[in-house]
Design a protein around this nucleic acid. Structure first.
Lengths: 247, 247
DNA sequence: GGCAAAGCAAGAGCACTGCTCTCGTTTTTG
DNA sequence: CAAAAACGAGAGCAGTGCTCTTGCTTTGCC
């Protein structure tokens, strides 16, 4: 199928494509997506700007490629954090993954902004980004699955009106998990990126000082919200989440 | 002080300044911040582009003005939602404010992106935006204050390591509220914008369908997290450690 | 009043952008 | 080997933010 070989030209093509992405990623990391310039990339690579259009038909297509790579990079970071916390309890592993995601975001602010900030072009990310985007979220779902099959998972409260939606979401995302857990998990996942975004985009300036501690506490509460429970102890501030619920 | 008067020229200046902002806001709402063009604004107003620089020294300054207006508009929406829910319990009022914020965001997506999306220029929003940004958050704090002085407010758990930070935050934001509540509230506020951002920026596409219901449930849980309790459920079980009976 | 100073609008121009089109050249393919 | 496809480079178009200069109008001061 000519994944390699097939002439020297095909090889050169993927090499040049990679070089373009590399240089573009460098500019993205340094200046942000808004400042990323096709001409500057071409200039740095010593080629005419028009030649670049043989590889990416438009600036948005280049950005889309970078978006996919960023999702992938984030997903890898999440998986690494999970694997590094393989032998601790689900709550700590959840916290580790959240901190891994946050760490990646702090280390790659412009790439984070590219995927979770304002959509750059005329919206509508292409279909191809969907699987890449799911990768990090799948890590979180995996933790819940482990807990569900292992030590246990509390079922978060779920109002009746949300039940059909939760069932649908569970069928799509994790058929083996209780719908309550899946629905709550999706919300918690979004909330996680609220915390990260606020920190990264300056909303915590002059408000939150000790951000590491603050974040760890917040995602700890989030862990409780999604139903993760401490296997043994509870001396640290653990409860407070959704326990009773009447209205 | 001469807020008005002082010559016909001064009056013309504030009129033109307003017209520029108005046209800029229109373009912002239609095309987004990236597409906002000084030249297009000037063109639409029938003036030379260079003349516009007498009123806003740079594009970023225009954007900053729009940012402040957007914060203000959001704050007004939050206050309106609060006032419309003046005669219900704190949880419902909290939910109403959250839904008000979300409603504003859905109705003004580009303005929302301007203030809570990727920072446009070289970061560092000017000092002047801070009070405007605080306005909506103050509404949320006010609800907690009412609950604290009224029916009651559960103290969320707070690990010892976060206590100093929570005390500092409470001193800055709401000295009359327990530090646990303030710290948790700040986190919850950030998480709220995670939910909104995910919906607005397409992260919920093909994942969450019934978004109204989903959102209402999520902010209901958030209300519980910050310590708001349902009035008919009676007082909190234990002052130091919250209920969590059924886990 | 008169008059200098300050504020203002307009135009030209600079350096930059994304993108298109054309024109030779090189490589691949039938 | 020749036709076809891919490629690189250059010129060019329409657009951008921003600056500078040149006249004109409105202020504020004596």
């Amino acid at each position: 199928m000519s994944s390699t070989a097939h002439g020297a030209r095909a090889r050169a093509r993927i090499e040049i494509t990679a070089a373009i992405k590399e240089e573009a990623r460098r500019q993205l990391a340094k200046e942000g997506a808004v400042k990323l310039s096709l001409r500057a990339v071409a200039r740095e690579l010593g080629m005419a700007s028009s030649a670049l259009y043989r590889y990416f038909p438009s600036r948005d297509d280049l950005l889309t490629a970078l978006i996919i790579d960023a999702y992938d990079s984030l997903g890898a970071a999440a998986e690494a954090a999970r694997d590094a916390a393989a032998d601790v309890g689900p709550v700590r592993r959840w916290t580790a993954v959240c901190e891994g995601v946050r760490g990646w975001a702090l280390g790659h602010p412009h790439e984070y902004a590219l995927i979770y900030g304002t959509p750059v072009p005329g919206y509508t990310a292409p279909e191809t980004t969907v699987p890449a985007a799911a990768r990090s979220a799948l890590v979180a779902i995996g933790i819940l699955r482990d807990a569900h099959q292992g030590l246990g998972l509390a079922k978060p409260p779920l109002p009746a009106e949300l039940r059909p939606e939760a069932v649908r979401m569970a069928a799509d995302l994790a058929p083996d998990l209780p719908p309550e857990v899946v629905a709550t998990m999706v919300a918690a996942w979004a909330q996680l990126f609220g915390l990260i975004g606020f920190e990264l985009f300056g909303q915590f300036n002059r408000v939150v000082e000790d951000r590491d501690t603050f974040f760890r506490h917040a995602v700890g509460q989030l862990a409780h919200t999604v139903g993760l429970v401490y296997p043994q102890q509870g001396p640290v501030a653990t409860p407070g989440g959704p326990a009773a619920e009447s209205s």
